[in-house]
Write a protein that binds this DNA or RNA. Structure first.
Lengths: 362, 362
DNA sequence: AATGCATGATTAATCGATTAATCATCTTAA
DNA sequence: TTAAGATGATTAATCGATTAATCATGCATT
């Protein structure tokens, strides 16, 4: 009853062709010594019978499942689809499957999620860590996607440089008084982005940063960010750390009767699904997730398939060494540059950027 | 070299306790006949040694992988995160892992994705079909999540009823001239939603439907929906088939200087991440994904774990029979009602709903 | 005391692929 | 002619958990 799979197995093929199952295995894998014409014959009958190798059998023998685990931060992140898709495609191309696990909220869940994946026998993990989280040592190679400045990071977008692109663009339009909008001051990604933005500011430029989480601590979602005051005080450009927040900014301004981009320019990050279809379409910075996924998966698989080092020869391992206790893998390229996507939410700064005494001109 | 897993196996535990590996297996699974105190002892040492069962070994013997496949439609769907998370949680609680595969775009990819998952040995599939797509017969039970009206549907939200809730709410606010905004006329979900909305219209109510895909066929994303004209013609409420489209509507109106909700009310569907944080916050209809996932996964697992019927006794199978050739599983509950979430994007209809001759009042 | 029965544990086969070790031929060189 | 080597295929063990079949022991019944 149990284990009665539908398709044929190697023994069946062997019987049909009239050889041993070992020869079938060798022929299909191309490993041992099998005459070319036998290989041909075996391949043909395997295809004819609709042979599908048993993952369980192979995994048991080789100790490898050909499955990777993908650990994602809290699901509310609208970037999730892009990440998951890119990872799945990259893994699939390399012959691996992707098991998902999400660590909604707390670090505990993240740890549990990782444990579950390990127990399922994944060969490696891709972890997009929850903001500011570190992952403990685990029993398999790990590719970490966070920010270039995070210790243990395998590969990620160059958020810093992305921030620079945004501000450079706004400065070319004549802006000098910025408001940066972040969500969580503990997020590595958000800090990198804001850091990059600040890094290209000139001495005379004004800027201020607000963190949504701190601002609205404990209150329900729908609360004003108080943008009107900032605009009255002379801010002409608002740069958010994500399109989600840029959207919040955009609609709050529009409701207050402030015209975007005529009076205030707005920018976001990540090029989320809704960004091109809102009015005005959001100017944002696009992340090349496909490439990041390819690099992460490649580094992971390289480590997985590398011949395991003997204890006295640690050089063959791809694990990072040094101060970090994490066994995250390294990639040749650790950051992927971002692309500025100019759309309709930015315009030249209004000449009279000086705030009027009473704000009536707004 | 190969297969040298880190942890101990049953034989090791057996050796330590001084029994046979069969007894260990029985003790841990609670299946055979083992004395209570031996069970206790074995459980203890297993925990002590940090025993983790080998999925490969178990899968090979039992023929079951304890992994489900999740096939998702094109990734642009912002609902994706909720679905994936809910499915993962439900599956995880039942002791199953979730392998993802996405069928971006065409039906071919969807078929390939399903094939890949089958080859990986999944025990069952959850398929959220691409709009209007049917899935061919596959070699394992399938739970399909689409709409209650789709043949073969296992469980889904009651989109029709959700649509009714929206219109009832708008009618209570005094609206009688509606514009429905859909994206793709081939989508079962969207048709159900619009169908439900129309079903509660009174004879005197006016309504019109626009399909974004047809409207903007071949043009780049950012194009006007021409909402201003509709508003000038007397439309006071615009009901979109998704929050994504509602957002598009909202920002287009705001840019045109039309006040939401004072002049026009806007509603969406799905309660996406951004819906509570835009201004005005979107009134929408929430989908209880957690419950849908639980039902789908439960139905799937029930079928997987049911003793396979002998060929002459088809009654024990959970497969749908009849005109459909699909082996999708049935659930006791096939639709889950939706919840209206009232926020700020709707207001009472303006008394002078009659269009002014020249539209200047707008 | 002998038989039947319930209980507790063991033996050994099995799932399917992989691979080191071995064997059987045939070729080539001395 | 014979030994060494190359080539092609087979044997059999192995990965780890499961389970049907079997065995051993204790207890109660007649």
């Amino acid at each position: 009853m149990a284990g009665s799979r539908s398709g044929p197995n190697m023994t069946q093929i062997a019987k049909v062709v009239g050889v041993s199952s070992a020869t079938v295995s060798n022929a299909l894998s191309g490993k041992g010594r099998v005459s070319p014409k036998l290989v041909e014959k075996i391949r043909a009958t395997a295809a004819e019978l609709g042979y599908v190798p048993s993952n369980a059998g192979r995994a048991l023998r080789t100790g490898r499942s050909n499955v990777l685990g993908l650990v994602l931060p809290d699901i509310s992140n609208p970037l999730f689809p892009q990440i998951a898709q890119a990872m799945e495609v990259a893994a699939s191309n390399a012959g691996y499957g992707v098991l998902i696990a999400d660590s909604r909220g707390d670090v505990t869940t993240q740890t549990q999620a990782i444990a579950r994946l390990i127990e399922r026998g994944v060969d490696g993990l891709v972890v997009i860590p929850r903001r500011g989280t570190r992952i403990g040592s685990v029993a398999c190679p790990v590719a970490m996607v966070d920010t270039p400045s995070t210790p243990g990071n395998t590969v990620s977008a160059d958020h810093w440089e992305g921030g620079q692109q945004v501000i450079r663009h706004l400065k070319e339009l004549g802006h000098h008084n910025f408001l940066f909008v972040g969500h969580d001051p503990a997020s590595n990604v958000q800090n990198d982005r804001i850091g990059g933005m600040k890094s290209v500011l000139a001495p005379g430029d004004k800027h201020q940063t607000i963190w949504i989480e701190s601002l609205l601590a404990g209150t329900p979602d729908q609360t004003s960010l108080g943008l009107l005051d900032h605009v009255k005080n002379g801010v002409t450009a608002i740069a958010a750390v994500s399109d989600l927040h840029a959207l919040r900014v955009l609609t709050e301004l529009q409701t207050a009767g402030i015209k975007v981009p005529e009076q205030v320019s707005v920018t976001g990050f990540d090029d989320l699904v809704f960004s091109p279809v809102v009015t005005p379409a959001l100017t944002t910075v696009h992340m090349n997730m496909t490439r990041i996924a390819e690099i992460a998966i490649a580094a992971l698989i390289k480590d997985i398939e590398a011949p395991r080092a003997s204890p006295d020869d640690p050089d063959t391992s791809n694990y990072k060494t040094g101060s970090t206790d994490q066994n995250t893998v390294k990639a040749d390229t650790s950051k992927v540059s971002m692309q500025l996507v100019v759309r309709g939410s930015c315009a030249p700064a209004v000449p009279s950027a000086t705030p009027s005494p009473n704000g009536e001109t707004l």
